[in-house]
Amino acid sequence: MKGPFPAIFILIATLWTGTAIADLPVLSTANNSDVLQRIDMPDPHYQMGLQKAVLAPNEVKVRHMHTGPEVVYVLSGEIIITMDGQPEKRMKAGESFKFLAYAPHISKAGPQGATVLATWVVEKGKSLSVPAP
């Protein structure tokens, strides 16, 4: 379809359902994280890293998994974690949680967004995060 009809239809549907566009989830497409430090471990095959990630309000990191264990501390906001076979976990500023290697999960920021600090250990040369099957 061409012209203004599709945009008008979406606007009317949004107003009719009462869903605000700001409340819709934002799928994570940009890399909003910075690796602050990588250090070699005593075993020369592994590295430890420190990473800060900033998630926009309602931003969703699609189903993925980490190639090594990770500990995450919530600096601000709220993050909701959904893991296979487990109830949803809501973590607020000041709380922490852990991921075992290769545990598939989805991360979603709360309505105010979230900033987290993560520490992880991976094999040298491997990516920290990979898509989950």
Results as ranks from 00 to 15, higher is better:
35 V>C: 08
119 T>E: 07
1 M>R: 11
122 V>Y: 07
23 D>H: 12
3 G>N: 08
120 W>C: 00
35 V>W: 06
117 L>W: 02
31 N>R: 15
32 N>T: 12
55 L>N: 01
114 A>R: 04
34 D>C: 12
53 A>M: 13
49 G>S: 03
61 K>L: 14
86 Q>E: 11
97 F>P: 08
53 A>D: 11
49 G>Y: 03
76 S>W: 07
131 P>G: 04
36 L>R: 10
121 V>P: 00
21 I>V: 14
88 E>A: 05
43 D>I: 00
3 G>R: 08
118 A>Y: 03
75 L>W: 01
102 Y>C: 00
86 Q>K: 15
50 L>V: 11
76 S>A: 12
14 T>D: 09
20 A>Y: 06
98 K>G: 14
100 L>S: 12
31 N>I: 11
118 A>M: 06
44 P>Y: 09
81 I>P: 06
53 A>P: 00
25 P>H: 06
110 G>L: 02
23 D>T: 09
14 T>S: 15
35 V>F: 05
19 T>R: 11
46 Y>S: 02
123 E>M: 04
5 F>L: 14
84 D>W: 02
117 L>M: 13
12 I>A: 14
33 S>E: 13
84 D>V: 06
133 P>R: 07
8 I>Q: 10
57 P>E: 02
82 T>K: 12
93 A>R: 01
33 S>G: 14
110 G>P: 01
74 V>Q: 08
76 S>P: 03
10 I>W: 13
22 A>H: 10
18 G>T: 05
63 R>Q: 09
61 K>D: 10
127 S>E: 14
125 G>F: 09
108 K>V: 00
22 A>L: 02
77 G>F: 02
74 V>W: 08
18 G>W: 09
52 K>F: 04
42 P>K: 10
43 D>G: 00
100 L>W: 06
48 M>R: 10
132 A>N: 09
130 V>M: 07
70 E>P: 00
32 N>R: 15
129 S>W: 00
118 A>R: 05
101 A>I: 01
109 A>V: 03
115 T>R: 08
28 S>C: 14
27 L>T: 07
24 L>W: 13
32 N>D: 12
125 G>P: 10
66 H>A: 00
85 G>T: 05
19 T>N: 13
119 T>F: 08
52 K>E: 12
35 V>Y: 05
81 I>C: 08
82 T>A: 12
79 I>C: 13
7 A>C: 02
17 T>M: 13
118 A>F: 00
121 V>L: 07
131 P>C: 05
